[in-house]
Amino acid sequence: MFKKDISPGSKSKVKSSVQRAIRTQLVQTYPLLAPHIDEIIPKKEQLDAMKIPERVTLYLIGLTPLFYQHMTDALLPHLKLVHRFPTCFPSLRIDRGAIRFVLSGATLMAPGLTSTGGRLPTGADTEKGGYGELGGKGEEGKLYWDGEGEREGEGWYGGRELEKGEPVVVCAEGKLEACAVGLLSMGTKECKEKGKGPVVEEGHYLGDGLWRLVTE
């Protein structure tokens, strides 16, 4: 979606009622974000909306981009926000070989997820935890890794199967930080069964136009 560079559009202030609506919507879409919502969007802070091409609205506070939204689709987190709260978003993991394709804006295909390096939700509903490479099993939302030693493959990718159309964060094998955000174009269960075809449609990835957008 953001392959080309974006020139910053005009910023406008968001009405406080709309701001409240966005907050509730966020908590609904990302339940794990609930404990942090006050830190992400403090009640007193003025939220700004910036219009960028392709009918996308980017929400920011001050200079920090937070979320973007295509028309009235789900609110998707900006990668900088994902890096700040990596455990709060449903995630998948791709193998090493797929990273370079994702970072050049390709649609994420199933083989990158189903191979040994990739991770998909396990399918057991009862499991709970923080998502992503930094999310520890059972410790909800807690960042447990202390920066020492190898913890390859210890990330937790959720028990619940994700449905088609859900927002998802894409982590990568051997990397701590997430590398892309997008909407699922195929449920994770179907992905496991079929093992081919596109899974995450064009979204926001590291180094794309949205990433490089200067928000003065």
């Binding site: 830190e39 890096h83 709260f85 990596p86 920066g147 701590l176 590398c179 990433w211």
Partner: peptide, 26 residues
């Protein structure tokens, strides 16, 4: 990587490369 989960602000602070703006591992 300082996991500052126990402190007040809970967001992580991520270093980005000064040359290509990506996180250094990328």
């Amino acid at each position: 990587e300082a996991a500052d989960a126990s402190h007040e602000p809970q967001s992580r602070h991520v270093v980005y490369c000064g040359v290509c703006t990506l996180p250094p591992e990328y």
